[in-house]
């Protein structure tokens, strides 16, 4: 039971409804516009921040299959909600938490602001509120709060809502804001297994339309955001150097070794202590004249 989002970038128009819906759902402030048209096209802002949890990237990619050899590709980027998140494994106070149904959530009441999560995330997702005196970490939470209490309002424009309207609203409410806002169906929300099956079905059905890869299926141990694309993923700003191993799996062995190491260190140090005390005693006995022997044999450490 793990929820996920599948984005079929071939269906994305780059309308940025998801980006706007995300701002609204999370009540985030505006950013100052800095267009870098040569590098980023009409992407704005340039990167995620404490004010932006979702950004749509623009890519004009050379593709011989496309008309005139150029293809526009847009991708909605936000937290990948890894199956084994580096940020959660980094957090010393469980402020970041992987919910059993998929979302990686954050609780600012626990957070120390150490920013280890910002360093650890392979996707560069968590960001800090640098201009705040109490800087929280901010990131997409897959609208987990919406998913939890997805009750539709009983009233619509002051009148009792008809059942079909209620059902429609409840359905929209039970999705992350970005998915609910998507006008083309490029974004789909559902069970991760079902979405993976759907992604592979689309690739199999239209091999001419997609590269044969579902990004997020295995990257960094698998993520809850899954992507389909017409062009190789490294051409549209996705990291393809992460491998299939989850990030925390690198540190778990070292951290699991700590408690046995404490016990081993204690035993080893005690052993060294008694051995070296014995050696000091023997040495003192040999070195000292017979008369002084008993006194010299007193272990050296007993004298402060």
């Amino acid at each position: 039971m793990s929820k996920a989002v599948l984005e079929d970038t071939t269906r994305c128009l780059g309308c940025r409804s998801c980006q706007v819906a995300c701002k609204q759902a999370n009540d985030l402030p505006a950013e100052r516009t800095h267009l870098e048209k040569r590098r980023l096209g009409f992407q704005n802002p340039a990167a995620l921040s404490a004010k932006t949890f979702t950004v749509v990237t623009n890519h004009e990619v050379e593709d011989p299959r496309a008309p005139a050899g150029l293809r526009w590709v847009f991708a909605k980027r936000s937290c990948m909600h890894c199956l084994e998140p580096a940020c959660v494994s980094a957090c010393p106070v469980t402020a970041l938490h992987k919910e059993t149904d998929g979302p990686v959530t954050y609780d600012s009441e626990k957070c120390l602001g150490c920013r280890y999560c910002v360093w650890a995330c392979p996707f560069g997702v968590p960001t800090a509120e640098w201009d705040s005196l109490a800087p929280r970490i901010r990131k997409c939470t897959l609208c987990f709060d919406r998913l939890r209490d997805a009750a539709a309002p009983a009233e619509l424009n002051g009148k009792a809502a008809p059942p079909e309207a209620q059902a429609r609203m409840a359905e929209a409410q039970a999705k992350p804001a970005c998915v609910a806002a998507c006008p083309t169906g490029a974004l789909m929300f559902g069970e991760r297994d079902a979405l993976l099956a759907e992604a592979h079905r689309r690739i199999a059905e239209h091999p001419e339309r997609y590269v044969a890869h579902v990004y997020g299926e295995k990257e960094a141990g698998g993520t809850s955001l899954l992507y389909l694309a017409a062009v190789p993923f490294d051409r549209i700003g996705f990291r393809t150097d992460l491998g299939e191993r989850s990030v925390p799996s690198h540190s778990v062995p070292a951290m699991s070794a700590v408690p046995p190491a404490v016990i081993a260190a204690g035993g080893l140090l005690a052993g060294i202590y008694f051995l070296s005390r014995r050696r000091a005693e023997v040495k003192a006995k040999q070195a000292a004249p017979a008369k002084d022997a008993p006194e010299a044999a007193v272990p050296q450490d007993r004298k402060e």
Binding site: S89, C91, P92, V93, T94, S251, A254, M255, S256
Partner: peptide, 10 residues
């Protein structure tokens, strides 16, 4: 809090 395997916690 008792995180599982956080080096920062350790």
């Amino acid at each position: 809090q008792m995180p599982e395997h956080s080096a920062m916690y350790e």
